[in-house]
Amino acid sequence: MDVFMKGLSKAKEGVVAAAEKTKQGVAEAAGKTKEGVLYVGSKTKEGVVHGVATVAEKTKEQVTNVGGAVVTGVTAVAQKTVEGAGSIAAATGFVKKDQLGKNEEGAPQEGILEDMPVDPDNEAYEMPSEEGYQDYEPEA
């Protein structure tokens, strides 16, 4: 019985440690998101679009440190934060509304985080759909 109880105690310690790591990862992701939003706020009209992409990228980098179902929630929060940063930029006159959601080359930025393969159960990952990809044929 002692062996059984000791095993359960060790398992509990492992769960607590994993929860603490997840909590730490979420806190880091939130900190990076805040950094990115402050970065966007300090940019001029020309830099705002690039700044919004930076927020998304920093958040995406930190999301990889967070495991399990938390990833889905962090990704949703990050996307809403990026959308909010863009709205703030438009409201303050840093950028025109028609410039939001495009990178410096004018290509749409939507789907940055949505296409990231995420499995809350950590069982399997699927690649994003290939609808947006084109076949590449090298020139002879």
Results as ranks from 00 to 15, higher is better:
117 P>S: 10
106 G>R: 01
57 E>F: 10
108 P>Y: 05
87 S>D: 08
7 G>V: 14
128 P>N: 12
39 Y>V: 05
77 V>E: 01
11 A>C: 00
6 K>D: 07
84 G>H: 07
6 K>L: 03
49 V>N: 09
26 V>N: 00
56 A>E: 01
29 A>W: 08
105 E>T: 12
58 K>W: 02
75 T>D: 04
139 E>C: 12
80 K>V: 03
104 E>M: 03
127 M>I: 10
63 V>S: 02
89 A>R: 13
121 D>F: 04
123 E>H: 02
102 K>Q: 09
73 G>L: 14
65 N>E: 11
57 E>Y: 02
80 K>P: 03
38 L>E: 07
17 A>F: 10
9 S>P: 00
16 V>H: 14
79 Q>R: 01
55 V>L: 10
32 K>F: 14
78 A>E: 02
43 K>F: 01
45 K>L: 15
51 G>S: 12
126 E>M: 11
10 K>Y: 07
120 P>M: 11
51 G>C: 14
120 P>E: 08
135 D>T: 12
128 P>W: 01
80 K>D: 01
55 V>S: 01
28 E>N: 09
135 D>F: 07
73 G>D: 06
132 G>K: 14
130 E>M: 06
3 V>K: 03
2 D>P: 01
34 K>I: 08
38 L>I: 05
89 A>P: 07
95 V>S: 13
120 P>Y: 14
77 V>Y: 15
130 E>H: 13
2 D>S: 03
94 F>H: 06
15 V>P: 00
81 T>S: 03
107 A>K: 11
19 A>S: 01
64 T>E: 02
137 E>R: 11
50 H>L: 15
15 V>Y: 14
74 V>Y: 04
15 V>A: 01
40 V>T: 02
113 L>D: 12
58 K>G: 00
4 F>H: 00
35 E>N: 13
55 V>W: 15
72 T>E: 07
104 E>W: 08
132 G>H: 08
8 L>C: 01
9 S>G: 04
100 L>S: 10
35 E>D: 01
4 F>S: 00
135 D>S: 11
59 T>R: 02
140 A>R: 11
74 V>Q: 02
80 K>M: 10
7 G>P: 01
129 S>K: 05
73 G>Y: 01
91 A>H: 10
129 S>E: 13
109 Q>K: 07
93 G>A: 00
75 T>L: 14
105 E>K: 07
126 E>H: 13
19 A>F: 15
69 A>C: 03
118 V>L: 13
52 V>T: 00
80 K>G: 07
115 D>R: 12
77 V>A: 12
88 I>Q: 05
67 G>N: 01
104 E>R: 11
26 V>G: 00
34 K>Q: 04
124 A>N: 08
47 G>H: 15
116 M>S: 09
41 G>F: 11
136 Y>Q: 15
72 T>V: 13
86 G>E: 15
135 D>V: 04
130 E>C: 07
43 K>H: 04
139 E>Q: 08
139 E>R: 06
119 D>Q: 15
3 V>L: 07
99 Q>A: 10
30 A>K: 06
132 G>E: 08
6 K>Y: 08
67 G>I: 10
81 T>P: 01
46 E>R: 00
132 G>A: 11
96 K>F: 14
4 F>T: 00
73 G>T: 13
34 K>G: 04
47 G>K: 10
105 E>H: 13
10 K>R: 05
